[in-house]
């Protein structure tokens, strides 16, 4: 009891520091963190899948749905409240994930990955064909309001960041709860041996379906937050390279802890922006090289660097 209290305190402190960072860091860094946390939510969903040995090359589907919900709700329904948009976008991507889940939950390994990819690419194709929504150019998203509060300029950047931070924390907490539930404990068991899990009287397909839905909802929320931060949506959000980037970050981060996706995402954004600045002609090579080194030398992601100092089994349980 005492121990979990201590852990809770630690995370609360971390959250407070991150919230304070919104006021202390320069604006570009706040924006970068905002974007990193939004994308971190998508990666958090991938973590749920990856713990079962599943990887999706199509999370961009939900990410894009979330983004376009923000754009289209503003355009056609005149909805600009961040809370409403977040609920709306998450709900819609959750609904789509329920449908897609019926199809993909049967598959494993690369087939799972490719089928997910196919769905995201179909959405991409539809959006490219929709000239009313600007085709590949996309369109701008209006400034969000927060329960009637309509900040501007620097205040907007900070409030938007705090909103994303709160949503990310909620997402991380949800996944943490999920992983501690019976269904959650099955994640690694399914990866290790599906048939035995079935013998336990659990529907593996149902369990995987639940993961697809959870991951989809998280990716949708990430898309909403990212669209609010960037202020623009375009079909690129659904393109396979976007999905590839999320998978990249998942591996970079490791699956040791629900905080890992956010840390990995922030490091990735930093890495990329500095690669852009210092090696504008070879930034892809820098990213690719980093990924290779990570896979070779840090097979369990960045998080393994941190958890190695503690007793390994107990930290695993913490997540």
């Amino acid at each position: 009891m005492n121990r979990s209290y201590q852990i809770a305190l630690r995370y609360a402190a971390a959250l407070a520091v991150l919230a304070a960072a919104g006021f202390l860091l320069p604006q570009w860094a706040v924006f970068l963190l905002n974007l990193a946390l939004s994308k971190g939510l998508v990666v958090l969903g991938l973590l749920v899948l990856w713990r079962t040995g599943l990887i999706s090359f199509g999370q961009a589907l939900y990410f894009c749905i979330g983004g376009y919900v923000v754009g289209m709700a503003g355009l056609y329904l005149d909805l600009h409240d961040a809370f409403v948009l977040l609920a709306f976008g998450t709900a819609l991507s959750l609904a789509v994930a329920v449908l897609v889940g019926f199809l993909v939950a049967r598959y494993r390994q690369i087939f799972f990955a490719m089928l997910s990819l196919a769905f995201s690419m179909i959405l991409y194709g539809v959006l490219v064909k929709t000239e009313a929504l600007g085709s590949t150019d996309g369109f701008n998203v209006g400034r969000p309001t927060f329960l009637g509060y309509a900040p501007e300029g620097e205040a907007l950047a900070i409030v938007s960041y705090l909103f994303t931070l709160a949503a990310s924390a909620a997402g991380a907490f949800t996944v943490w709860l999920y992983l501690r539930s019976t269904l959650g404990h099955l994640t690694t068991a399914i990866r290790d041996n599906e048939v035995r899990v079935e013998y336990l009287g659990v529907s593996v397909r149902g369990a995987i379906h639940a993961k697809v839905v959870l991951a989809g909802a998280l990716a949708g929320a990430g898309g909403v937050l990212s669209a609010l931060a960037v202020g623009h949506v375009d079909p690129e959000m659904a393109y396979w390279t976007t999905s590839g980037e999320f998978v990249f970050v998942t591996i970079l981060a490791g699956t040791g802890n629900v905080v890992a996706p956010f840390l990995g995402s922030a490091l990735f954004e930093l890495l990329r922006t500095y690669a852009f600045q210092y090696t504008p002609y070879t930034w892809q090579m820098v990213l690719g090289g980093t990924l290779l080194l990570l896979i070779l030398f840090l097979p369990d992601g960045i998080w393994s660097l941190l958890s190695r100092r503690k007793a390994a089994p107990s930290t695993r349980r913490e997540a």
Binding site: P26, F31, V230, G231, E236, T242, T273
Partner: peptide, 20 residues
Amino acid sequence: IDEAGGSAKQVAEFRNLVQR
């Protein structure tokens, strides 16, 4: 700065150019 990578990245890089 390279313009590659789509509009979300470009928005981030634009902010970096101006603010960083």
